[in-house]
Amino acid sequence: MTQLLPLTDQDIAQALSQTLNNWSYVSQRLIRKWHTKNWLESMAVVNQISIIAEKEQHHPNLTIKYSEVIVELYTHDINAITRLDVILADAIEKDIQGIIN
């Protein structure tokens, strides 16, 4: 499956500059942090990410704090960033905008 091939650093840099400009690439992971108003808003973000992840059948690591949500994406099967991670990050980015003001 071509989607399970690791992306090159150039591919990742291109995705970050074009569609994922709020994400960062740290230690072979795509990372995004959202600062929220409170616990309930954090949970709303996590719940929405869960729905998107299930739809895509690709699941991120999530860290939930009172007023912060951290998403860490990589393809666990090959321990690298793949097209699946970019697709999921883009879907999350577009959908979460409606939750956090």
Rank of each mutant, 00 (worst) to 15 (best):
L84M: 06
L4V: 00
D11Y: 05
Q10P: 03
T8W: 02
A44V: 01
R29H: 14
I87P: 00
T2N: 12
H58D: 11
E56K: 13
Q97I: 11
E54W: 02
Q18T: 14
L7P: 05
W23M: 09
E93T: 12
Y25F: 15
W39K: 10
L16H: 03
I52H: 08
E68F: 07
V26T: 10
V71W: 00
K37E: 13
E56A: 13
W23K: 09
E54Y: 08
A53L: 05
N21M: 05
D11T: 02
D9Y: 01
E68D: 11
S27H: 12
H58I: 04
Q28S: 12
Y74E: 10
A91Y: 01
L40R: 13
H35R: 08
P60H: 13
T8I: 05
K33M: 08
S24H: 08
R29V: 08
K37G: 11
S50P: 10
R32H: 05
A89C: 05
Y25C: 04
Q28H: 11
V69A: 03
V26D: 06
D11P: 04
I49W: 00
N101L: 06
Q57M: 05
K65Q: 15
V45D: 08
G98S: 13
N22D: 15
T19C: 10
V71C: 13
S17E: 14
Y74P: 01
H35N: 12
A91I: 03
R29W: 02
Q3W: 04
D9K: 14
V26W: 00
Y74I: 02
L88G: 05
S24R: 14
V86C: 00
K65D: 14
R83Q: 13
T36S: 12
V69W: 06
I12E: 02
N22R: 12
V46P: 11
A91E: 13
N101R: 06
L20V: 11
D95F: 00
A80T: 10
R83P: 00
I12K: 07
T36Q: 12
L30Q: 01
M43V: 14
L5Q: 13
Q57D: 12
Q28A: 10
A13I: 01
A44H: 09
E72D: 14
V71K: 00
V86N: 00
A15H: 07
E72C: 07
E56H: 12
L30T: 02
T63V: 15
W23N: 07
E68A: 14
I49T: 05
G98V: 03
A13R: 12
I51E: 14
A89L: 03
A80L: 13
T82I: 01
D95H: 08
Q28D: 13
L16C: 06
A44F: 01
I78Y: 05
Q57G: 00
L73I: 07
D77V: 11
A80C: 10
W39P: 04
Q3C: 02
P6M: 03
I81C: 06
I81H: 04
Y25S: 01
R29N: 15
Q3K: 09
I64T: 15
P60W: 12
M43E: 09
I52G: 07
Q97D: 09
D11E: 14
L84I: 02
I49L: 13
I51L: 14
N38Q: 04
I87L: 06
R29Q: 15
N101H: 08
